[in-house]
Design a protein around this nucleic acid. Structure first.
Lengths: 186, 186
DNA sequence: TAACTATGTCTCAAATGTGAGACTTTATGC
DNA sequence: GCATAAAGTCTCACATTTGAGACATAGTTA
């Protein structure tokens, strides 16, 4: 196993664990990554540094997936659909990315690259929703904030359904888009 | 402040905090409850005991609300609607109740009153969904597991929207039911 | 007011989590 | 197979969290 591979595996494990339990001991992360705590500490001096790496990875992954979704079509309806698939694909990354940036104790500043990326994604999202509302594709009585909250809720539902194994993985995206699109009146 | 009042306030605070961060230090719970950690420890000898009290309160509250919802109507469609409102009203209690009982590390046993209550609620839920599917009110290609996952996702969405203050509280239930009911094809 | 109760303050010991040094073992590539 | 890198083991010091005793203080009620 190469060094960067292990490092990446630890980050992925950390995102899974912290999404479930933000203050979980690093031992749990190490177990999830299938390494010892000693190895984890060789790559990350502490929780702060690990969290920073997670934040960076979540930003990179989510931003990339969302931008690709937006570039896949010029039609807002398709853009929204692909954004949902992107969120589902990112899974825990997307869930934690959102969770951390919408906490009351989160110190938001556009100077931080992660915050800027979050803002950017939210802004693009809002634009798509606004466009759909203008063309009457989204029920008018729903607010943009609710549509975004629902979007996140649907992603959380897929993450939970996937980890619980209660829903066939190849049906997840279909179910998610069906429920979300109908749920906002598209 | 009477003793039982304080005790209850601590439990409510703990449910809010643990729903956000399961391994949060008890200091955070004390802060949320607006008491000192010393006071918290007078009521609960430790984390385990506090968690047990939370589990009991979540069970009591969720079960009561769900049963009331089911008893409000004989029509499955109405029952489902009231169950969603019940979930939204319970908020973090419902969210954490679910979270804890659907964890892989959770040791499920029907002998435990909390587990039994969870099973009971799930079972009643499944019955309602099955009835609706039989009368063709729910899209046939959706599985029961997905409908339940979506239900939980919508409740999570309302909890987040409420704590973020992004959606007017008096619109939440209406939005939630609109999105959920359309989302499953009712 | 006096007695009682609930809570806060200060303190401390035990438990748990954290970070890293020193060395060994296991993979990996040449 | 040998050199090297990566990961494990054992160990320890330090920080944080946890649980509770001793006592002071505020609020409540007889």
């Amino acid at each position: 196993m190469s060094a960067s591979q292990t490092q990446h595996r630890i980050i992925e494990a950390a995102i899974l664990v912290f999404n479930e339990d933000y203050s979980a001991p690093l031992e749990h992360v190490a177990e999830q990554a299938d390494v010892t705590r000693r190895t984890l500490h060789r790559y990350f001096t502490g929780r702060e540094e690990l969290l920073a790496s997670c934040a960076q990875e979540m930003r990179r992954s989510c931003q990339q997936a969302m931008l690709q979704a937006l570039n896949s079509s010029a039609e807002p309806r398709k853009q929204l659909e692909y954004m949902l698939y992107a969120g589902v694909d990112c899974g825990a990354k997307y869930a934690l990315f959102n969770k951390l940036h919408s906490r009351p104790e989160h110190h938001h500043t556009p100077l931080n690259a992660d915050c800027a990326a979050y803002d950017s994604v939210c802004s693009r999202f809002r634009n798509v929703i606004t466009q759909l509302q203008e063309q009457g594709a989204i029920s008018l009585h729903l607010t943009t904030a609710w549509v975004m909250a629902l979007f996140n809720g649907v992603v959380v539902a897929t993450v939970n359904a996937a980890t619980a194994g209660a829903v066939a993985p190849n049906s997840l995206k279909e179910f998610a888009w069906f429920s979300f699109s109908k749920g906002i009146g598209v």
